[in-house]
Write a protein that binds this DNA or RNA. Structure first.
Lengths: 150, 150
DNA sequence: TCAATACCGGACCAAAATGGTACTGTTTTC
DNA sequence: GAAAACAGTACCATTTTGGTCCGGTATTGA
């Protein structure tokens, strides 16, 4: 179905929960409760999001998590990349050179181009927009441009 | 990595091979040879592509496959959907209603919007463009629009 | 008519990815 | 020093994916 993993989906929910309480440090338990997800799962998500530098963690009593930068400065692409690695639709879009068919394979360039465009769509959606919960204008524009050119 | 399945990747290769010989009926063996893929795999791909109405099949001696319509009228979205089903980034982008969190989940609308935009990117890339093997203009435009709006 | 060619529709299986859980360690606060 | 809370890692069940095989049917042509 060409979809992101379920954990990536969860990660966006978790991130919007955190973003809804700016300048508060929320514990994993609080976040799990608000997102209605299992605590161990949320813990795992937050670890990955922390490694990617999207959230800051604080240990000890009254510790927890907080956004590492404003919601406007975090894109959906950031979250997807944190969970799934670099965005690329095919294996040779990301790491090229290990496909012996590459020479006569005219398809790889097209896939790379498409991957770039999709990355653009993901970069255009910010966490702030997702928090607002509105079908946002930028992504719509990209759709229409693409369709007009089809 | 947010990627299409390997079979989908193969399907694009197979489709461009067929498109390279318009008005010829190619056997599975010929296609497998040209695409440098295993014959049973190609057979499976062609079955799915046939069900989706992208290729026509002919049985019997000198049978084989042919594009069901011109390469200009077949988009990458057609191929992806033939292999992976409807395009949607999350489960609730495609089938909504089975997620009990949907009510307070402000994220689903954003994902749906993004899914639509990505579908647009995929629809903008035609098989004819992939055959030409050029980084095509339309997808590039979509990228730039998305980035400009970010 | 019969044999060869080639697609059709399944079933099947091994390997990998995914999602989820548990456990132990370390840091910080009170 | 005890409790709270994150850190790291390992583990397992399930599902998905990729790949293969086989019996059936349609078409051609000798």
């Amino acid at each position: 179905m060409l979809r992101v993993s379920r954990l990536t989906d969860y990660a966006t929910v978790v991130m919007t929960c955190i973003a809804a309480h700016p300048s508060d440090v929320l514990s994993t338990a609080q976040i799990a409760d608000e997102a209605r997800l299992e605590l161990p799962t949320v813990s795992k998500l937050l670890k990955l999001l922390g490694h990617a530098g999207l959230v800051e963690s604080f240990r000890g009593v009254n510790g927890g998590y907080r956004l590492a930068r404003p919601a406007e400065a975090i894109s959906l692409a950031d979250i997807v990349e944190a969970m799934e690695g670099p965005i690329g639709m095919t294996e040779c879009s990301v790491a090229q050179g290990q496909c012996d068919r590459q020479a006569q394979c005219g398809v790889s360039d097209s896939w790379r181009s498409v991957s770039g465009a999709i990355g653009g769509v993901l970069r255009a959606m910010t966490l702030a927009q997702m928090l607002a919960g509105r079908p946002t204008a930028p992504a719509k524009d990209a759709t229409q441009v693409a369709q007009a050119n089809a």
